[in-house]
Design a protein around this nucleic acid. Structure first.
Lengths: 256, 256
DNA sequence: TCTTTCAATTGTTGGACAAATAAAAGATAG
DNA sequence: CTATCTTTTATTTGTCCAACAATTGAAAGA
């Protein structure tokens, strides 16, 4: 995911419709493993029993007996469901249905530790601008004095930061806390997933000294506009703040 | 207004989201399970050895020995990586690195047995509002006559849609094409990942008849405001369009 | 070159024990 | 006797081990 697509249409090779309807067709469907079959069974069990978020699944032992499977097989199937974010398992209490699939979907991309290209930088900063600047209405509606206090607290930690990595960690925490003010879990999830990329961008653009001086005061100014409910000033300050790193990239990567 | 997640700070004790920077801080790390630790280890192994798509991972036995873990623990860790679409395992040949994460993201939502919760609905529509309404500046800057023509084309397909599923597919294509106008790949990717949820929301709120009448004309009106570069009208129309499904959800779940 | 055999690896099962914890039983204070 | 806190118990999940089946790439043989 590096190059910008030419206004891509859609086309996602229809990966969604892969469930069931495989083995009954008598096809050469590569013979699903016991674990995969078990996942299918549990899925139909959820569907047929009308289980909903908050309900409990049978215990491992019961699943073993009901579907004639070994316990480790059941455990691997449950591991898949856990990874999907549809169940939460705790010792003694068992498996409870949840729905955190959105968060897990974005988790998939936590592996990215590749080099940040200029295109990616532009995209990510554009995204952040949308999340942190354009959302000012929701932000101003929801922000509480407690939020402001928290943000000041986080920002003050800059003064104790020793390394650039520490500082960028605090920088990210500041912006994450700001996004959290909106109270939208989906947006917060997306923001958290972008952490590795955002951190790289922060690190690339700044040294530890820049953090404890420029970044710190810029954050403080942003907080002040937020506190005053000054929409115009907030948008201006935040936009400038996000665009600051632009130079480093434009000079760093001339062309390709 | 809506029951937002209680200003979650950070920390979502998920499986793989426990990225590094955890154990060195000596915090109250809730003691990650052996499987989660192993996933982390394997990830750093991939990273440090510079493994890429097509390369092989060590065998189960080697992983057992190297990380002092039981074989079932290793298997559950590998099961997570398989579910994430990061490795493909075949008997005898072992685990090979792949990258099918995007496809897996869609698989997550093949679990259509679960209802979309009201919280998710509110969050997602809020997110879409940000992406499709608040981004109007970028949108108006980038939109070309070709884009408009494409959007008209997609919208016209409503008239040929036979089932509600077909129609919601077209509906999603329309909005995806609109988001693509911004030319931001990161945003487009996120939007595509959300496809299954968005589709479900679309389906829940509408019947096939609604699609071919109300939705079609609402889209047409939106396109018209876009063509006229009427910012105010665009925001109003699009916001109303997105908020339309709200009623269906509010009456569905009375309280809790 | 083809076939057969072999060996290594993953897939599945069952059992054992440790860790966690909700529920039940008991103890204590009022 | 009641209520609250503490302890015990029983159940469930977490981890590990051992064994065997299934798969299949690789070597041996025809």
């Amino acid at each position: 995911m590096t190059d910008l697509p030419p206004k891509m249409d859609d086309e996602t090779d229809s990966a969604t419709a892969t469930h069931s309807a495989a083995r009954e067709a008598g096809g050469q469907e590569s013979k699903a493993s016991a674990v995969d079959e078990l996942v299918d069974h549990i899925r139909t069990l959820i569907s047929e029993d009308g289980l909903k978020v908050g309900d409990s699944l049978p215990t491992e032992k019961e699943l073993c007996e009901r579907f004639h499977a070994g316990r480790n097989t059941v455990r691997e199937a449950m591991r898949i469901l856990k990874t999907y974010g549809v169940v939460k398992v705790r010792p003694k209490v068992g498996a409870v249905l949840i729905d955190e699939r959105m968060a897990r979907a974005f988790d998939l991309f936590a592996f990215n530790t590749l080099e940040v290209s200029r295109e990616t930088f532009v995209d990510i900063q554009g995204f952040r601008s949308l999340l942190e600047v354009a959302s000012f209405e929701t932000l101003f509606d929801n922000v509480t004095p407690e939020d402001i206090a928290d943000l000041h607290q986080v920002n003050s930690e800059f003064l104790a930061a020793k390394t650039a990595v520490d500082a960028s960690e605090i920088d990210f925490r500041f912006h994450t806390r700001l996004v959290a003010v909106m109270g939208n879990k989906a947006i917060l999830d997306v923001y958290k997933i972008m952490k590795p990329v955002i951190m790289k961008i922060m690190l690339k653009a700044k040294t530890v000294q820049t953090f404890s001086t420029v970044t710190y005061s810029e954050h403080a100014e942003i907080l002040e506009t937020l506190e005053r409910r000054d929409r115009t000033a907030y948008q201006y300050k935040m936009k400038s703040h996000l665009d600051a790193g632009f130079r480093h990239f434009e000079t760093a990567k001339p062309a390709e």
